[in-house]
Nucleic acid binder design. Structure first.
Length: 775
DNA sequence: CAGTGAGCGAGCTTCCGCTTGACTT
């Protein structure tokens, strides 16, 4: 048994550190938090200074038992959790549950995982900072109070199983409000004039493209301008060149990495985080959940060496960036390769690509500025006071651009290249001038990565929760991520060529969206509901404001339960008020009368989601109901579309003596035949589906079913080897089992199947192990 | 997996932040 026990948060870190410390030290990890508020009810004694009721998390019980054994037999216990609020709290909870004594307990922190940093930390231990721990308790208690008092209001007043919280509700609000802005957006237009001119001088022949800074509001004005140009001469009025520089972006954090991985690699936020985790565990990159852009001295040194070696001294420039985001805690470094001389790693394609991105970004951040030369050429029009301007950009020294350039979300980036050589006063030949009707763009919808960016800006959520929060608001069906078809519109293009102005009407596509976040009916309804009664919690600055209070607790200027008391009083009154006074929110909307019956047609939110209704709920005669289909919403559905929903179920013919009926169910449109259900394909339309198409569906499914069974056993009809979505598996009754690698599924005997089932680990679906956010 | 929606009432749901696996049909 070694003399010293060191406890860190992550097992990967523990492994590395153990190597640095030698055999006098055993290094273990806590796997994050070990104790939390009990899961049942509030678990906060509101009457007695908000005393929290803590409980060891069920999946940590065994680990704590093992740690306790080790701690009891060690001379000194070193608590080396992260140096931030949550890390301090983990150390405190550990010392409580392990029964550590101050005499032989040391709290240490280090900022980078190197032998020097760790030995240095061991030389300068301190004790647990109770103020910082209290700031964390305040954070934890506040989140529980908000979440567990708001959610039940939604269950009663909107729909069961909904949730609300300090972070998720504000994230949903961002998406709802962006959608409202887009709906309210009035697309104005203006005519943009561009000229193409011919150049012919001692440097050769070329063309030059130049824009008119002035835009014209109407087609008539644009046309008048082109006509003025038709017999004008064009001369170079002025040539302006000025040097410019461009600097590299800071190294990655948990917010910027998914943004770039989304833009450059089309990764979702969760995929980026999963792959980054794999790289971290393989020792390839530093920790991936960080809000810091700081690089260690070791990293700076490695970067310099690599850059000088590969590109030369003049490409290197040492930079240290400072973190600007609200509420950053900086317990870690920026995300960077562990070894900067490795520009590539082994692994699957995702790992290699993400690593390359991280490597380039880190290296570029330590490289020299790019030197540019910007050129503006102004072109006079003999018949007008307006001027055309051509803009060009030439790279004089690549600097960091040799390695990496950050992308932007704005796709309409200007390409500014090299301009032909010209002289002041030179005459240009007019090739053509166009005036194109350009529509203004509405605000852009969020995608996952840009939502993370916005949340970081507002200080909402933490690096470890960005990805889970995004999946929570989708699982609760407040938000959907999807593609939407755009629409087409006409625009006018006027062209001046050979002295004549011609007008053409063209068609452009616009509004196409891919993988964007849209609010659902329920998301909009819940946001509206919470905004009415809990505007302060929905405020974009709520988190930033409470963070200031937590900081005061951390500095010892305030008692944590006083802060909570001041918050809880008014908050709880509003909760009671909302429960007593507010009506059930249904988001009901009247679409108009049903032409057949004359009764009103409504859309509203019911227990199972959005639905349409014909007739009144209060009337003697029961109303008819029909669920809205996927992609339809209360906000956008028309009366005609709503009425179509009542055409189901619809008989469409017979097959093998049984009637076929098309219907729309919870899982989308289907055909019912002989008590069996057949889902329609995405391309099939339930309104127009014919009997022949339905028969195709039935036959097709039968083929799949026939291929599903690999083997059956006469002795045990409940045991089967089947083909599933994830490959072959064994099904016994209602349980399914994985087939171990190396055994051929088709040749498994009944005994072998039963053996596999027996030795299989127990199902993880037991209570208490269901992951957050999953249903 | 499969067609609900009124109202009654049982018993359930829910937060954020720190960490990894286990395992899906």
């Amino acid at each position: 048994m070694s003399k010293n026990l060191v406890i860190v948060e992550s097992p990967a870190k523990a492994k590395t550190i153990e190597g640095y410390l030698g055999k006098e030290y055993t290094v273990k990890s806590s796997f994050g938090h070990v104790r939390d508020l009990a899961t049942k009810d509030l678990s906060i004694d509101v009457e007695h200074d908000f005393k929290p009721l803590y409980e060891i998390m069920p999946d940590k019980l065994k680990m704590i038992k093992d740690l306790k054994k080790l701690a009891d037999s060690s001379e000194i216990i070193w608590l080396a959790t992260d140096e931030d609020r949550e890390g301090e709290a983990i150390s405190w909870h550990l010392s409580e549950v392990l029964g550590l004594k101050p005499a032989n307990t040391r709290r240490i922190v280090f900022h980078e995982i190197t032998k020097t940093a760790i030995t240095e930390a061991i030389l300068h231990p301190r004790s647990i900072d109770q103020n910082l721990v209290d700031a964390q308790q305040a954070r934890r208690v506040l989140d529980r109070l908000v979440g567990f008092e708001l959610s039940p209001i939604l269950w009663k007043k909107v729909k069961p199983s909904l949730s609300a919280g300090r972070v998720q509700s504000v994230a949903v609000r961002l998406i709802v409000e962006r959608e409202e802005d887009i709906r309210a957006f009035n697309s104005t237009f203006a005519f943009k004039v561009t000229g193409i001119f011919d150049v012919e001088n001692e440097f050769g022949k070329a063309t030059i493209k130049a824009d008119l800074p002035k835009r014209y509001a109407t087609s008539a004005e644009a046309k008048a301008f082109l006509e003025i140009c038709s017999n004008a001469t064009f001369t170079v009025a002025d040539i302006e060149t000025k040097p410019a520089k461009r600097s590299p972006a800071p190294p990655f954090t948990t917010s910027t990495l998914p943004q770039e991985a989304s833009r450059k690699l089309s990764f979702s936020v969760s995929r980026t985080m999963t792959v980054a985790q794999q790289l971290y565990e393989a020792g390839k990159i530093t920790y991936m959940r960080t809000d810091s852009v700081h690089l260690s001295l070791t990293a700076l040194g490695m970067a310099k060496e690599e850059i000088v070696r590969s590109y030369g001294q003049e490409y290197h420039k040492s930079r240290q960036f400072t973190t600007k985001s609200k509420g950053a805690q900086e317990a870690h470094e920026a995300i960077r390769p562990t070894y900067l001389n490795q520009s590539a790693v082994d692994g699957d394609a995702s790992q290699r690509r993400l690593y390359e991105l991280i490597w380039k970004r880190t290296i570029a951040s330590q490289m020299a500025d790019a030197a540019l030369e910007k050129t503006n050429i102004y072109i006079n029009i003999s018949t007008s006071k307006e001027q055309f301007v051509a803009m060009g950009e030439v790279i004089k020294f690549e600097g960091f651009l040799k390695v990496y350039l950050e992308s932007t979300d704005d796709e309409s980036e200007k390409e500014e290249g090299l301009l032909p050589q010209l002289k002041k006063g030179e005459l240009l030949g007019m090739n053509e001038i166009t005036a194109v009707q350009k529509f203004a763009q509405p605000p852009a919808r969020y995608n996952e990565a840009s939502l993370v960016k916005k949340m970081e800006e507002l200080g909402i959520g933490r690096p470890s929760t960005y990805a889970p929060t995004i999946s929570t608001i989708q699982k609760r069906e407040y938000v959907v991520k999807e593609d939407r078809e755009g629409a087409s519109r006409e625009f006018e293009q006027l062209t001046l060529r050979a002295g004549k102005v011609k007008s053409a009407i063209r068609i452009e596509k616009f509004g196409f969206e891919k993988n964007k976040l849209f609010p659902t009916d329920i998301g909009e309804l819940v946001t509206r509901f919470l905004m009415q009664s809990f505007i302060d919690i929905m405020d974009y600055n709520f988190t930033a404001n409470v963070e200031k209070e937590f900081d005061e607790i951390a500095e010892g200027l305030q008692e944590w339960n006083h802060i909570i008391r001041d918050f809880y009083g008014p908050f709880h009154r509003k909760v009671t008020e909302a429960l007593e006074s507010k009506e059930r929110a249904k988001g009901e909307k009247l679409l108009g009368p049903d032409p057949k019956s004359g009764k009103n047609v409504y859309v509203k939110i019911g227990r199972y989601g959005s639905m349409a209704q014909i007739g009144e709920t209060e009337s003697e005669e029961k109303p008819r109901f029909a669920g809205l289909r996927k992609g339809q919403s209360i906000e956008s559905i028309s009366l005609e579309e709503a009425l179509k929903l009542f055409d189901f179920p619809r008989p469409i013919g017979e097959f093998e003596g049984g009637e076929m009926i098309v219907g729309i169910g919870r899982f989308g449109p289907y055909v019912l035949h002989n008590k069996k259900f057949y889902s329609l394909k995405k391309t099939d339309d339930p309104v127009t589906l014919t009997a022949d198409e339905a028969i195709d569906l039935i036959v097709e499914k039968r083929v799949v079913e026939a291929n599903r069974t690999i083997s059956e056993f006469v002795e045990r009809p409940d045991v089967k080897v089947l083909n599933g979505r994830f490959g072959p598996y064994i099904s016994i009754g209602k349980e399914n089992y994985k087939i171990p690698k190396g055994s051929a599924p088709a040749s498994l005997s009944l005994n072998e199947c039963l053996e596999i089932a027996k030795s299989a680990p127990p199902s993880a679906k037991k209570k208490g192990f269901v992951k957050r956010g999953k249903k």
